[in-house]
Structures are given as C-alpha cells and as structure tokens.
Design a protein around this nucleic acid. Structure first.
Length: 425
RNA sequence: GCGGGCGUAGCCAAGUGGUUAAGGCAGUGGUUUGUGGUACCACCAUUCGUGGGUUCAAGUCCCAUCGUCCGCCCCA
C-alpha cells in the first residue's frame, strides 16, 4: 500500500473542525485590526531563504527541501513564511502605498526534520507581519493580537518569554562579551556548545545540557549590552505590555533561531505539548527587507504552529459535530427519487438535510436517523410517493403527521423555528 | 543526524514458542419484510506493519525495513 510520506499526515474531518475554528478566529481578530491576508507561493528560489533566514542556521543548513527544477534552477519549499511575504512586499512594491502594511498568511511549511508529536515535515503556520514601523507600539500590538487569538480560543496556562537581541551592533558587542566569559569554561561545555562558541555563541545560552546551563546562568546578559536606543525600545515594549495587562517573563537566554531577528524576540509556550512546547514565536526584524533588496523597512511579526495549537484545543472540550436538522427516510423507486428532490429543495431553503441512501428497511433507516442526531425525519414510502406527501416524524416525541410535499415547503419557517427550539433544549 | 519505546480488525485491546488469534466499541443482517433510541441472536483478522531468517512448530525469538511515539537536536 502506498502511504503518506514520513512526517506528513492526513487531517481527517473530525480534526478539520478544529482547524476551521482556528482559521475563523484568526480571520476575525486580525480582520478587526485591519490586517489583510496575503498568499505567497509555496516554493521560492533557494537564495531567498539562504539570504533571508541565514546560511548558518539549521533550517537553511540541513532542513530545507531543496531541489533543482527543469532548467537547473534551485528551488526550495518554504520552511517558514516571513521570507516569502517580505519578497512579495518588495516585488509588488507594497511599501509604495505608504504607511504600514499589516499582513497575515496561513499555509503549509516544509522542513526535513525527525518527526515528533507537534513536529511534522509538512506543517502549517498562521503568521502575521507588520511592515514599515519601528515604534514599540507595533511590537506590542502584534504580541497583543497573538494573545487575543490564543485567549479567544480558550487556551489557558500559556507563558510568554520575551527578550531583546538588540540591533546588529549591540549583538556584536554582546557576542564579544559572551565569548570572553565562556572561553575559560570551554572544556566544561557540552560538545555542541563548544562548536557553537565560534559559529553561533548566542545559541549556547539555551542549551539544555545541565552543566552548560549552569555556566550560562552567570553569563553576561544581552539586555545589559544594549545601546541606549535599543534598551529604550525594549523597556517601552515591556511597559506597553504591562499597560495591556499581558503577562510575560524576561528570558535572557531566549535567542530566536533565525538570523533576521532584531530587538524584540518572544515565544509563547505551553506545558501541555512535550518537547515541542512553542505555540507562537516571533519578533522584530528590522534588517530583513533591506537585506532582500527592498528599501530600509522596520518590521515585526510572529507565526503560530497550527498543529500544536490543534493539539492544545483537542485537550479542551471537544467540538460538537454538526448534526442535520432533518433526516430523510425513503424506500421504493418513486419514493427515493422524491426524497432526493425534497432534500435538495429543503437544503436550498437553508435546512441541514441528510438523505439516507441505503434503501434498507425502514427500521434500519430510523436507527441511522437517531445516530445522525437529526431532530426530525421525513418519511416517504410507496403510499406517500403515490400522493406526493410526506410523513414528518419528530424523533424525540415520536409524534408524526402527514403533510403534502408542497405544503411542507411553505411551512419551512415554522419548521425551522421548531427545530431550533428542540435543538437548544 | 543520534539514543530509546511501540506496531494484533475502522477504534480500544488479550495473547510472551504448540492444534481453529480472547473480549469490548463501531459496522452489517435478523428477531421487527412501513417506523428508531432498549434487548437478544448471527456475521465481521486463513492472519498479527512489511520482507527475510531460526525452529518439527512464530503474533510470540533473530535480522532488516517502514511507520509512530519519547528524548537529544531544531523550531512554530
């Protein structure tokens, strides 16, 4: 049997309702904040990600789905959303519209990683980008919206970590200070971290190795190496979050993995997800637009991992499947044909109608009607087919009445009201 | 890429070398051939992820492979 590729999976109808709930919530909340959806391609030139995300990162170094298409162009399935959105922003000159651009997107991303709960090779993100503004209020707005979405979905027990990684110059200074501090402990660090001492020392800070963690505890903090302007930015963001009543904790070890982040970096985590705990991650990326060939443009954004969010929602109350209003029971050639017609007419009048297609005994069809959760049945047998009528049977009470099919269509409003009443009780 | 656990029907599972692979849920048919929710009865895996091997004998042991889960790594 041919099965889905490792790290990919089918999202079946019972699960799709959670996805739809998330999508609807996101569209509504972001819509109110006047963010507009943008849809960028799923594959792009490899160079976009190499330059945007950074060649030294793991994502670019070993996790990209890269292949050459006909004509030997190197193509990559997008491993994240920001680079593509920024490319679209530049290519379509959205900056020329003046002011800020508030954009959001959703869709599949691809990374070649070892699958785990909450980590797939094809996974989905919903993300948001606010381009063209360097004000701390932009950082705060964006974080507040992530918060809104997660809260509206009913998620509790989430924690937000926040840090500032400063601008490029701050980071150079800090990097030197950090390496100076760590150098004497070099032999006590775990193997990975020893390597990172040269390549990417900031990452040593969030190593999970206990001994490395102990050493990192007393390392100089980046927030103490920020320029006055960077420090002000960070402090203002924190003040605004307090004003908004958004809880956070400063995590001096939080260093986002992708190269493009500057200043604010944040992460929203859950304890109910195991190792892949981050539900939402983001921050400011003031250099990326320019790096990718656009005008100097400050920006801030985040992405939410859909699969992880779905996992959390599934741990809460389950979502009720939508059951039909009416269930059509029919038997006999003429009756079955009339049943189909009636179903279509009633559906066009905005009723939820399930049609039993089995042609089996009435008893069996009623059994299925029960299980479907329908409020009432419409029964058509040979007798009803003969005189163009239908038997309307209320499943809870068992009472039924014969009605001419054309009269039934006239009493739809009445029918709907009664169904609504019975459904809510 | 590294280390470990697991894989028996649509789902939850018992079974740990010996003739026909428990049980439950769901499904289908019947008791009730035009009236359901209950009850009862019957049916529902020539086969245990897949491929090899050991053995008189394998779901059970060994090897490989695929998938999944946990941790590392990484990140949303």
């Amino acid at each position: 049997m041919i099965q889905a590729l490792r790290g990919t999976r089918d999202i079946l109808p019972e699960e799709v309702v959670y996805w739809q709930l998330i999508e609807a919530t996101v569209a509504e909340i972001l819509g109110r904040a006047v963010y507009r959806e943008i849809r960028a391609p799923i594959f792009e030139q490899t160079a976009l990600f190499e330059r945007g995300i950074g060649e030294a990162t793991d994502v670019v170094g070993k996790e990209m789905y890269t292949f050459s298409s006909r004509g030997d162009q190197s193509i990559t399935l997008r491993p994240e959303g920001t680079a593509g959105v920024v490319r679209a922003y530049i290519q379509n000159k959205l900056y020329a519209q003046g002011g800020v651009q508030r954009l959001w997107y959703t869709g599949p991303m691809f990374r070649y990683e070892r699958p785990q709960a909450g980590r797939q090779r094809q996974f989905h993100q919903v993300g948001l980008e606010l381009l063209g503004c360097d004000a701390p209020r932009a950082d705060a707005e964006v974080i507040a919206l992530a918060n809104n979405i997660l809260q509206t979905l009913g998620l509790q027990n989430l924690e937000m970590d926040i840090n500032s990684v400063g601008n490029g110059e701050d980071r150079q200074n800090y990097r030197a200070a950090l390496v100076g501090y760590l150098e004497p402990y070099k032999n006590d660090l775990d193997a990975d971290s020893q390597e990172r001492l040269i390549r990417n020392p900031l990452r040593i800070l969030d190593s999970k190795d206990p001994q490395t963690q102990e050493i990192a505890q007393n390392a100089p903090k980046i927030t103490e190496h920020l320029s006055v302007a960077s420090k002000n930015h960070f402090d203002t963001v924190l003040q605004l979050l307090r004003d908004l009543n958004i809880k956070y904790q400063i995590n001096h070890c939080l260093v986002r993995g992708l190269d493009y982040y500057t200043h604010t970096a944040f992460e929203i985590k859950s304890n109910d997800l195991g190792a892949q705990a981050t539900v939402c991650g983001g921050g400011r990326y003031d250099g990326l637009v320019k790096e990718l060939g656009g005008p100097e443009t400050q920006a801030v954004g985040w992405a939410i991992g859909m699969e992880r969010l779905v996992l959390l929602l599934q741990q809460l109350d389950s979502i009720a499947v939508n059951s039909p209003d009416l269930y059509i029971v029919s038997r006999g050639v003429a009756a079955e044909a009339q049943g189909l017609l009636l179903a279509q007419k009633l559906r066009s009048l905005d009723l939820g109608v399930e049609l039993d297609l089995s042609g089996s005994a009435f008893g069996k069809q009623f059994k299925r009607a029960d299980r479907s959760g329908a409020v009432a049945c419409l029964v058509i047998g040979d007798a009803e087919a003969e005189n163009q009528s239908v038997n309307l049977k209320w499943l809870a009470s068992g009472e039924q009445q014969a009605i001419a099919q054309k009269d039934l269509l006239d009493m739809v409003a009445e029918l709907k009201a009664k169904i609504k009443g019975l459904k809510s009780s």
